[in-house]
Design a protein around this nucleic acid. Structure first.
Lengths: 251, 251
DNA sequence: CGATAATTTGAGACGTTTCAAAGCGGGTGG
DNA sequence: CCACCCGCTTTGAAACGTCTCAAATTATCG
C-alpha cells in the first residue's frame, strides 16, 4: 500500500466524538476489530492510488477523505468525500486494486480494515450487512444527484447543491454550529474538482451567492446558509425528500 | 406501481438467449422465483416514476431500460442503462420509494422481483450476495468513469467513452456481430441525456468521429468502431483495465 | 516580515447551447 | 402504391456560459 504525506499539519478541523452510524446495533466484536488498526494521517496523505494493489477498506474517525479519479492528461474528478463516521471501500470488481485515489483532505484518523476480515464480518453479521446496504444506497443516491446536476445544470446550481449536501451530512454527524454553519476542509480548487468547474468559476459563483444573500462564506470555507429555501429552490431540491434519500439513518 | 405505455412497438431489438451472469452458480430456486413474474413491456413503458412508492426490483430478460433523474425544470439525466442479464434496484434508502425513473427504451421483457423476496434470497444465499456485490461494484465503477468524463472532458471524450462502454457491455452479453459492431436502442436525444450534452451537439460529435474514421454509425444507431485504439486513446481509457473494472464477471 | 499559496478580478477565447430550418425515413391511411 | 405526416437527424448562425490566461490582492506560515 502507498503512503505519501506532504506534511502540512494545518487545519485543526476534526469532528471529535463522532460515532459510526451502526453504533450500538452491532456487537462489540466489530468495534474491537475495526478499532485495532487505526492510522493517523496528515493532510495530503494518500491512502491509495488509482490502480494500486489494495486489500483494505477504511472507516473515518475524524477528518475528511476524498475519493478521486483522473484522466491521463491530469484532470481530476472528486467522486465522493468521506466524512467522519463513514466507510469507504475503494476496491474494484477485480478484488485487489483500488479504482480511485484516496486522499486525506486534512489531518485525519482512519481505521484500516482488512478485506478478508471485512468479508468475514459481513458474512457473519446480518445487521452489519443491513447497515452497509443502507450506506451504499445512500451513497448511490448522492452520486446520482451530483451526476444529474453536473450533467444538466449551471455552475450556480451545482454549487448550491453541493453546499446543501454538505449541510445535510454535517448536520447529520453533528458538525455544525448553532446556526447550522459549518466548515469544510476544502479549497476552491477541490470544490471545482467536485463540481466539474474551474476553480476560477467556483470563486465567481460563490461570490455571486454571497452577493445575493443566499450564503456567507467566511475565511477558510466557513459556510453559512442564510436563505435555505432559496438555495434549495436554486439547486432544484426538495429538502425533506433529499435528506431521506442521501442520509442513511433517516429511514 | 405505475404503468404507462406510449404504444410504439418498433425496434425489434432483443438479445435473445442471453443468460444472467450468475447462471449456473445459484440454485434453481432463484431461477424459479425470478422467472415467475415476468412482464412484457412496450417501448416507452415506465416501470417506476421518481418518488413513486415501489417494492420491487427488476431483472432484464431482453431489451434495454434507462434509469433517469430529472430536475424541476425538466432537464433529464440518464444515470444507467440496464441491459439484458442485468438487475436494477431503484429503491431508495427509505426502503419504499424509487429514486429514479425506470423506462423501457425498446420492447423489453423483465422479471419483477418483490423486495421482501429479494431480501430473503439475499440473506439465504451467500453466492447470490457475492454476485450481487460484484455487480454493484462494477456499476459503481461505470458510474465513476462517467462522472469523471462528464465533469472533466469535452463532448468528444464523453461520447468516445460511452461508445466504448457500450461495446464492452454488449460484447460481454454476446450482442455484437462478427466485427464487434452493435446496435443501441437509443436516439441522439437519449445519448445526450446520458452524456450531459445537447442532442444537437451529440449529432455534430458523432459526425466528426465518423469523418475522422474512428467509427461508423449506420441507420438507427448501428455502431461500428473502426479504430478501437484511437477511440480508447481519445476517451482516456486503458481497454483491459477498464474491462476489468466495469464488467462484473471478468474477475 | 518576507515568501508562498490561495483567492479575487478582468478580458478575451473557446466550446457548447439555442434557435431555426432543411433533409431524410418510416409508417399510415387513402 | 403513393402521398402525407411525423419524428429524428443534420446543418447553419448567433448567443451564452465557462475556461484560460494574467495580474492584483489577500491570507498563511516560517
Amino acid at each position: 500500500m502507498s503512503l505519501q504525506g506532504p506534511s502540512n499539519p494545518q487545519t485543526n478541523w476534526t469532528a471529535d466524538g463522532v460515532l459510526p452510524p451502526w453504533h450500538g446495533q452491532v456487537d462489540t466484536n466489530l468495534e474491537r476489530t475495526v478499532g485495532q488498526a487505526t492510522r493517523v494521517l496528515s493532510k495530503g496523505t494518500i491512502l491509495a492510488f488509482e490502480g494500486d494493489e489494495l486489500h483494505s477498506l477504511f472507516s473515518v474517525k475524524s477528518g475528511w477523505l476524498a475519493a478521486a479519479k483522473s484522466l491521463p492528461e491530469g484532470e481530476r474528478q472528486i467522486l465522493e468525500f468521506v466524512l467522519p463516521g463513514e466507510f469507504y471501500d475503494p476496491i474494484a470488481a477485480d478484488g485487489h486494486t483500488s479504482f480511485v485515489q484516496l486522499e486525506a483532505l486534512c489531518d485525519a484518523v482512519v481505521a484500516v480494515i482488512g478485506a478478508t476480515t471485512w468479508a468475514r464480518l459481513l458474512n457473519d453479521l446480518p445487521d452489519l450487512r443491513r447497515s452497509e446496504r443502507l450506506r451504499d444506497v445512500a451513497a448511490r443516491a448522492r452520486q446520482s444527484e451530483r451526476m444529474l446536476r453536473v450533467g444538466q445544470s449551471s455552475a450556480e446550481v451545482r454549487i448550491a447543491y453541493a453546499l446543501i449536501e454538505f449541510s445535510m451530512r454535517m448536520t447529520d454527524i453533528g458538525a455544525t454550529d448553532e446556526d447550522g454553519g459549518y466548515h469544510i476542509p476544502l479549497g476552491q480548487q477541490q470544490l471545482a474538482e467536485f463540481t466539474g468547474l474551474s476553480s476560477v468559476h467556483v470563486c465567481r459563483t460563490l461570490r455571486r451567492l454571497n452577493r445575493n444573500g443566499l450564503i456567507t462564506t467566511g475565511d477558510h470555507m466557513d459556510i453559512n446558509i442564510h436563505d435555505e429555501a432559496a438555495l434549495a429552490d436554486l439547486a432544484g431540491v426538495d429538502l425533506d425528500a433529499l435528506r431521506q434519500e442521501i442520509i442513511p439513518e433517516a429511514a
